[in-house]
Simulated assay, not measured.
Amino acid sequence: MSEARQIEAAIYERLSKVIDPELGRSVTDLGMIVAINADAIETKDASQSYDVTVHVELTVEGCPLSQTITNQINGAVSSYPDATLIPHIEVSSMSKDKLTNLVEGLKAERKHNPFTKPGSKTRIFAIASGKGGVGKSSVTANLAATFAALGYKTAAIDADIYGFSLPKLFGVHTQPTNLNGMLMPVTAWGVKLISIGMFAGADRAILWRGPRLQRSLEQFLSDVWWDNPDVLLLDLAPGTGDMAISVAQTLPNAEMVIITTPQPSASDVAVRSGLVALQVPTTVRGVVENMSYFDHRGERLEIFGHGGGQRVSEQLTHALGTEIPLLVQLPLQPEIREVGEAGRPAVLDADGALSDSPLAASFANLARQLMKQPQPMQSAQ
C-alpha cells in the first residue's frame, strides 16, 4: 500500500471518533464521509506533506451544526502525527434516498418510545406541581442545566403544552431540525430540548383536548432523536390533568418530583399531584420546596410562610405508605427570574459551568440525591 493510501486509511480511522453532535454517532457510521484523497506535495526538503481532501455529506442542506462538524474533521486530519497534512473539506448534502435509508435505520433502532424498552438506563424525572406560580418550570430548567454541568447527558421535554416556558428560560429561538420526519432537539446550555413553543404558530392559544395532548407527548418521545440520554426531565402542566396521567401511563418508569411553596394554599394542592401514584403506576421521588425564604441583609425572611414542603412530605408518606422526603428548600432569589428570563439558567455562569453560588450548590445536591436513589423497575409493556 502506498503512503498516500495509508494516510487515507489512517484518517478514516481518526474520523470514526468524530461524533455528529445531534445524532450522537460517528460521521463514518452515519455514512457522512464519502471519500478521502491524499495527494503528496513536492517540497524542497525531505519533509512529507500531503493535501488531504475529505468529501463530507451532511444530513441536510444548511445543517446548523455544519461548522462544528467541519471543525472537528479539520482537527482530526491536522492531528495526524507522521506527516504534515493540509486538510480541505468539501461539503455537500445527502441525496434524498440516502437520507431516507439513514433515518429509517435510526428509527428501526428505537422502535417507538425508546425510554420504555428493556435495558433503558435513562432516569426520567417528571417535575409536577398542584398549581401554577410555584416556580416549577424554573426548577426544571435549573435542574436540567445542573445535570448537564455535572456531566450527565441531559434532555428535557416541555410537557406543559398550554404554558410552555423552557425555550425562553434556555434562550432558545430556533426550531428543531426536521431530518426527513425525525426531529433533532435543540441543544442549549448542554441540554437537549423540545417544546411546542419552538414551532411556528406556538404564540397562539392552544386548544387541545386529552387525546391530542397524549399524542403530542408520544411524538415528543418517539419522533425526536434523543440518543439515549442519562437523564430526561419533563416539565408537566400544573395539576392532575390529562398530561400528568399520560406521562404516568406512557412512562411508567418516570419518577415524580413535587414542587411546592411554603404556604398552605400551595402545599395542600401539591399533595394531590403526588396522590396520582395511587391511581396510575409512578414513583414519587420527593418534594422540593421553592421560594422557602429570602435572605435580606443577614435576616432570613419567610415571605410565603413556613413548612409547606414538610407538610407535603408527611402527607404523601402517610398516603403512599413509603418515605417521600423533602429533598431541598430553595430560596427566593430575584436572580433566578432575572437571569432566567435573559435565557440562561441561574445555576450557570456565563461559560455554562456551575457557578459557585449557594443556589447552584443546592441544585447540585438535589441532582445527586435524585441519582443516588435506585431506578424504578419497568413494567412489562
Rank of each mutant, 00 (worst) to 15 (best):
T174F: 07
E314T: 13
A35T: 02
Y162I: 03
Q329P: 06
T187K: 07
G343M: 09
G151T: 11
G309E: 07
P262D: 00
A244F: 08
I245G: 03
G105R: 03
F115S: 03
L316P: 07
R212E: 13
A35P: 06
V288G: 02
H318A: 15
N71M: 12
L23E: 00
V288W: 00
M94D: 02
Q333A: 13
Q249P: 00
A361W: 01
R212D: 09
W226A: 04
F199T: 08
S137I: 10
L301S: 11
K136I: 12
D223L: 08
T250V: 07
S216F: 06
V18N: 03
H306M: 13
L233E: 10
A126K: 03
S16D: 15
M377F: 09
A364V: 09
M94R: 05
G239D: 10
S246R: 00
V186E: 04
H55T: 11
D39A: 15
G239Q: 07
F363R: 00
G163E: 10
D223P: 05
A155V: 05
E22V: 10
I124V: 13
H55P: 01
S92R: 02
P229I: 09
V56M: 14
R344W: 01
R344V: 06
D45V: 07
N290S: 07
V276M: 15
V27S: 02
R5G: 02
F125A: 06
V284T: 02
S165W: 03
F125T: 04
S66C: 07
D268E: 14
V52M: 00
G24R: 02
A145M: 02
E104A: 15
G343H: 00
A342I: 00
Q48S: 15
N71A: 15
S92Q: 11
I194M: 13
K136W: 01
S379H: 11
A270W: 02
A155D: 06
A346P: 13
S222C: 09
A83P: 11
L102F: 12
D29Q: 15
A155E: 03
E109P: 12
G210L: 08
S138R: 03
N290Y: 04
M1C: 12
P118I: 11
G62K: 00
A346I: 04
A277K: 01
L207C: 11
N178A: 09
D356E: 15
F115W: 08
M377I: 14
M198S: 04
Q67L: 13
S26V: 12
K372R: 14
A350F: 07
S267A: 15
S195N: 07
S66Q: 14
G190D: 06
A76G: 02
I245R: 01
D29T: 14
V54Q: 04
T100S: 14
R300S: 15
Y80V: 12
I303Q: 02
A4H: 06
C63I: 05
G132W: 07
L330Y: 02
A367V: 04
N74K: 04
T59M: 12
P262S: 05
E299S: 15
M291H: 01
L58C: 08
P376N: 01
S165A: 14
P358C: 10
S92E: 13
I127A: 04
S137H: 00
S292H: 02
P331V: 05
T122H: 08
S129Q: 04
I89R: 03
T260V: 08
E22F: 08
A144W: 07
Q175F: 03
L102H: 04
